[in-house]
Structures are given as C-alpha cells and as structure tokens.
C-alpha cells in the first residue's frame, strides 16, 4: 500500500495531476449547472411568467 502511494517517489506529481484533474472536472460540472440554472431564471423572468407549478416541470425536464 505504502509503495503504491509513493509511486516510485513521484507521488507529488502523479497524485497532484490526478487531483488537479478531478478538481477541474468537478468545477466544470458545477459551473455548467449554474450556467443552465441562471439561464433558466433569466429566460423565465423575461417571459414574465409566474413561477409554474411542479406539474409542468415533470413534462419538460
């Protein structure tokens, strides 16, 4: 186990690159969701629609 974690002494670089990748990927998901959500709020505001009931959501999303 210890040997595996040490990665021939390159652990900083190997684990570092993996963690960085994971962080950026999670960041991409979070920003994409936020982007979609904000677009939804903005688009809904401009139609001046009253916030619809949950029933409509089921059909459309």
């Amino acid at each position: 186990m210890r040997e595996f974690l040490l990665m021939d002494g390159y652990w900083v670089y190997v684990w570092g690159s993996w963690i960085l990748t994971l962080v950026v990927m999670l960041g991409l998901i979070v920003t994409a969701r936020r982007h979609h959500r904000r677009a939804l709020v903005e688009a809904a505001r401009e139609t001046e629609a009253p916030l619809p009931a949950r029933a409509a959501v089921k059909e459309l999303s």
Partner: peptide, 22 residues
C-alpha cells in the same frame, strides 16, 4: 448541459419557456 443553458439564453422571451420551472 451548457448547450441547454445557451439555448435558453438565446430563446428568452419565447413562449415555450413559460412552462419551465426555474
């Protein structure tokens, strides 16, 4: 996911968006 957001932004004011829940 982003594309859905972009479509919404470009379509704001359209009637079909009224049915969506923010």
């Amino acid at each position: 996911l982003r594309l859905r957001g972009e479509v919404l932004l470009r379509e704001r004011g359209a009637r079909w968006i009224r049915g969506l829940d923010s």
